[in-house]
């Protein structure tokens, strides 16, 4: 797959001397959905702002669709749509007018049919003549998305699109992202919600303290780190793992009551049936059984802590 955004050695030190990005390298593939995960202040917005030309990089370079954002800034920017983190909208403007304005800024002629289509895809078709201050927060966010889509960008940056959005609207947003991907738009979204990245991304990048700690296919990341565990709680503690259970590579908890079995999530032969039969065969009595999946959350927390250490 060819890459559409190429970030290399990108560094950003703000005027006060704070370094928000340390030499970030990132290649975004055409047509993918990339989720950037990171805690508050990790540098996600700074990265996006720099690619979009809102902040000047201190070092490194960025190309979008092969165009350097400094040399060929016009061509590069034409390809980009940006939905900012903050809801920046003029309260007294009408929805239709503000969307029309955004399209004009990109040098494109008026196209009411397209505007109507974009508004409809965001369920805003009945709000075209409404003043923005009369909209709910979720609708305002969708207006921002409409503004970013109305020049038909090839790459869309969504900076925390679902922050402060209710569950239903979040699902709608995910659907929209899916639909955009089907149209061939490359999407980069930032989020604090791991389940969001898990639900919609093709690849996941983790940023912390201005460094890209990891970037990997979601499936591979889940397979590599996404083991499942079954914890067996025994009615009576054991001093050691019984001989009949040696094959299963179990770990025994300190109090001797818990045995933990780790297996491949979604694997065909999990070995659970054999294990439970062996437990019974060893004469052990079960008090409880619990299974856990190491979620992206844990992976993420683990990574961020490693980074901090």
């Amino acid at each position: 797959m060819s890459s559409i955004v190429n970030v290399s050695g990108l560094g950003k030190t703000y005027e006060g001397g704070f370094t928000a990005l340390h030499s970030v390298d990132l290649e975004i593939r055409e047509g993918e959905i990339l989720a950037l995960l990171g805690p508050n202040g990790a540098g996600k917005t700074t990265l996006i702002s720099t690619i979009c030309g809102l902040t000047n990089a201190t070092s490194g370079s960025v190309t979008v669709g092969g165009f350097d954002i400094r040399e060929d800034w016009r061509a590069a920017r034409r390809l980009i749509g940006l939905v900012p983190q903050e809801i920046n909208l003029e309260p007294f403007e009408k929805v239709g007018n503000t969307v029309r304005f955004s399209r004009g800024l990109f040098g494109l002629p008026r196209d009411e049919a397209l505007i109507d289509r974009v508004l409809k895809s965001l369920s805003l078709d009945d709000k075209k003549d409404e003043r923005i201050r009369h909209l709910s927060g979720g609708m305002k966010r969708r207006v921002l998305i409409a503004k970013a889509l109305v020049h038909e960008p090839r790459v869309l940056f969504l900076d925390e699109p679902t922050a402060g959005v209710d569950v239903e609207l979040r699902r709608d947003m995910w659907e929209l992202v899916d639909q955009l991907r089907a149209d061939g738009v490359t999407i980069i979204l930032t989020t604090h919600y791991i389940e969001e990245a898990e639900a919609i991304a093709d690849r996941i990048g983790v940023i912390n303290k201005g460094e890209l700690l990891l970037i990997e296919d979601k499936a591979a990341l889940m397979a590599r780190l996404g083991k499942k565990q079954m914890v067996i709680e025994l009615a009576e503690p054991v001093d050691a793992i019984p001989a009949g259970l040696m094959d299963f590579d179990l770990t025994r908890s300190d109090d001797g009551r818990g045995l933990t079995y780790t297996y491949e999530a979604g694997g065909k032969r999990t070995g659970i049936t054999r294990l439970l039969a062996a437990v019974q065969g060893a004469g052990l009595v079960l008090a409880d059984v619990e299974t856990k999946q190491s979620s992206l959350e844990e992976i993420f927390v683990g990574l961020v802590h490693e980074g901090a250490a």
Binding site: C52, G53, W73, R77, I80, L82, N88, S102, L105, K147
Partner: peptide, 9 residues
């Protein structure tokens, strides 16, 4: 809202 003017071509 200046962001859209500054990030436009």
């Amino acid at each position: 809202t200046i962001f859209e003017v500054l990030s436009a071509p």
